[in-house]
Amino acid sequence: MARFTLNGKSTQVDVEPATPLLWVLREQVGLTGTKYGCGVAQCGACTVHIDGKPVRSCVTPVSEVEGKKITTIEGLAKNGALNRVQKAWLEHDVPQCGYCQSGMIMAATALLSAKPNPTDADIDAAITNICRCGTFQQVREAIHAAAKAKA
């Protein structure tokens, strides 16, 4: 049995402790916004926040998140309002196929929490996600726009 807080709700799942958090989220909890892309922490499509930090959930055993606070793409909006990164993503029409974008948005949201006014170099260092469609130009624009939009 694993217990953690997921998007603000206390959650428990009956699953083998070695199961990657990614598959617990997708298959036990039923939240499929977090994507499987590589399973080896390369692509970042599975990025979630654990206690506010961006983590690749495909290589994080569920046993490691016992008692921790997890946020997924489904948990970013508050009372139905998208967060500023999601809004910037809409405004800048960022996604193409969209499959990597959950992870990209989670990474960008974590970056802005840590660095409210990121430089291009900060973005280069923090956003290591693979996007095969090649949305990087819009991703960069949207992150800068989201930084400016902060309250």
């Binding site: 499929t32 994507k35 489904e74 996604p95 969209g98």
Partner: peptide
């Protein structure tokens, strides 16, 4: 785009 920024879009996976 809307469902691609909130995790709601259902891909084949």
């Amino acid at each position: 785009t809307a469902d691609k920024v909130n995790g709601k879009l259902v891909y084949g996976l």
